[in-house]
Amino acid sequence: MKTMRIVAITVLCLTALTILGASYLAPAGYEQQFRETPQAGPSAHHPLGTDDLGRDRWARLLYGMRVSLTLAPLAALFTTVLAGLVGGIAGYYGGWTERCCKLLIDLFLSVPWLFLLITVRAVLPLNVSPEASVTVTFALLGLLGWAASARVICTGAKDLMKSEFVWQARAQGFSGFKLVRLHLLPNLRGALLAQFWISIPVFIIAEANLGALGLGVAEPLPSLGSLLRELQDVVTLRPEPWRLLPLAVLIVVISSFQALLNKQEVRA
């Protein structure tokens, strides 16, 4: 387990350094089109070759990682905080409060988000920068993605409130914020972290799919999601392993997070 953890921490540190140093590591701008060499294979100039428009794949991967691995965790954090608040309040108070919170959760789960997102895109101004567009997208994902997690947290909080140690703490006069800080939050940490890590890849893939609605990353800005869209075409996908690198990066980064999570869960 210790080796796994060291590997995971190393991978995440390397990823963070890569994201921070993208502008130094990239051989060209992510938007620059080398029109004489579209769809080129790896070379000294383009370590991962070029895409259909002649843009350097390595540069696009670096900047795509920067966009997705910065905004997706932020959105996941936002959604986890919302889920923790709503689910925690529901589980802590129970009764009418729990019923109201669950009603809100059910409402959020049953709303046709696809149509809502189309409407949101329709009212957004057209002249927004790609950076603003992708930020709005992840903010929306964070705002809308908390309901399922809140249900899990609510169940966990409810179970904790019935546990013997909480009863004992109450008998000793613990209540309110002190009870939440000393007993509920530490015991819900595993569930909250799990919801957080699960949300990251879900949001990255969701952002890619939202491209079909006109939401998500606008050209020429790359994201891991937009790079993964290339892999959707089953017929035209060529047997060129370097095209799979965005997928490999996503798997490695998420697995590293999961490795850390497992360790923390064991400790919890």
């Binding site: 920068s129 006109g214 606008a218 020429p220």
Partner: peptide, 23 residues
């Protein structure tokens, strides 16, 4: 996206927006 880069050469900034067909 290619037109975006072409017009950049004459100082015009283009934002590419994709919308669902009904919108």
């Amino acid at each position: 996206t290619m037109i975006q880069q072409d017009l950049r050469k004459i100082g015009i900034k283009v934002n590419v927006v994709t919308l669902d067909f009904n919108s």
